[in-house]
Design a protein around this nucleic acid. Structure first.
Lengths: 256, 256
DNA sequence: CGGCGAATTGACGGACGTCAACTGCTGTGG
DNA sequence: CCACAGCAGTTGACGTCCGTCAATTCGCCG
């Protein structure tokens, strides 16, 4: 395993604060693996033996019931997933699939649990990570229950624009069918909703979206700091005025 | 504060494993307070200074957006809430309201955070609690996105019956309007859905519900261990056969 | 060049929200 | 003690949003 990758893992909030000993123990038994697109890493209901760390690529977390499935999160590097199942040594509640070819680090779940009780700082970091994930899900649930499809889409676009640097035009991060599932609608309906947003200054061209009149779109979307987590991604420059309106700094995007 | 109450708090998974020192530190600065029904304990977006422990009564957690509100959880004793905000020292993402007169223990959030980094066992317990809450929310989100209103209701009734001891007739734990909000529907629609379940052997009389043909109702509901957390509540006796079908033992019902 | 799957569009139906009227219960004040 | 206001719950009518089915186009990869 390359030092570069090790550095990137060490830089994660989850690991940045633990002792060198702890970090060595965790990474000693770990292995880095490259998966092709479309690989199922973990099946809903199966026991979870590893903590996964996505270093490169894209991973989808999905849930199933009665032959229907829904996307619960779309992960990009660097993020960890299925932490909750690891902490509790329980079966996974969702499946994990690579969307593109992905480099994934796998850390022994047993080692994680062992090390937690020895390194309080690490245990605290795990608790904080879990808390951030929890809050991400609270946001998702409010988003789902309180907003209609069009509003969810509008807010999603606003969030994406900010996450990708704030330029008026940006690219959708995945296939539209997956995006539809994430937003809790059918692909057909996403298509129609995107068309409907033309009236609000949204131009769509394949995966490329440009927001020509942000103010108009915002009046429809009514974004809310208690639902939409507009934290800028690494490299994003956040203006002072904006930081004041969106004071949250915590919250992971998700991750089980 | 009475010893009886202290014992009950100490018995919670969150506190059962920490050192006496830790527990004393936490409870030293704590106070037990009795609130009348309908009291807002915490407003969405406000900073959170305390970890709340519900010792008696009923508390509702709710979220708001655009003049609409939705119930995210209904808590009964003994449970903690807004742990996530305390761990991250962040603003609450949901409001908390007493539904009935409630006895609530309030623990200093600052003390919680301080003590976590000193007592690894406690930090682990916090991480586990957060993980359980997280998984509860994953279930909620799947429930919301994958099932229709009637199916959510049917599963809710099945879960309630099991939680209350498995008798064919049991009582709804709250007003129907709040239940409707929890299930993500309007009161009118809950009313209609309950009526519709008559065909599946459900008899409703005010707050009292009796399930006359469980098998028929289950065929509609299709309960799933990866969504419905049928863990029996204290005192509930779980048969062996059932334990095998529902092997989960973890997961808190929710709690922020 | 042919085929498959993603995306779009239209037509249709069902589920769910909204509005309104009515019932029954409870607590309050004359 | 009764009248009445107020609210939870129910029921009906209606409209809208959204899912389903089908047909078509487009781009990509074999």
């Amino acid at each position: 395993m390359r030092d570069v990758d090790l550095e990137r893992v060490r830089a994660l909030p989850l690991f940045s604060d633990c002792s060198d000993d702890t970090f060595r123990t965790l990474t000693a038994g770990a292995f880095l693996q490259r998966f092709p697109a479309g690989t199922t890493l973990l099946l809903e209901g199966d026991p979870v033996d590893f903590l996964y760390v996505l270093l490169d690529g894209v991973v989808e977390l999905e849930g199933t019931w009665n032959d229907k499935e829904t996307t619960l999160a779309i992960l990009r590097p660097v993020s960890t997933f299925i932490l909750a199942a690891v902490v509790l040594d329980a079966d996974g509640l969702m499946s994990a699939r690579t969307v593109e070819r992905s480099d994934i680090l796998m850390l022994s779940g047993a080692a994680m649990r062992r090390v937690m009780s020895e390194d309080a700082r690490f245990a605290v970091a795990v608790a904080q990570e879990m808390a951030g994930c929890y809050r991400g899900l609270v946001r998702s649930l409010k988003n789902q229950k309180l907003r209609g499809g069009l509003e969810r889409l509008a807010n999603y676009l606003i969030t994406q624009r900010l996450r990708q640097g704030g330029e008026p035009t940006f690219a959708l991060p995945t296939e539209k069918r997956m995006l539809a599932s994430l937003l809790g609608m059918t692909p057909e309906n996403l298509s129609r909703s995107l068309a409907a947003l033309a009236d609000y200054g949204v131009e769509v061209n394949g995966p490329s979206v440009t927001i020509t009149r942000p103010a108009v779109l915002e009046r429809l979307a009514k974004p809310d700091p208690l639902i939409d987590n507009h934290q800028p991604v690494s490299g994003g420059v956040t203006g002072k005025a904006q930081r004041e309106r969106w004071p949250q700094g915590d919250d992971r995007t998700h991750a089980a």
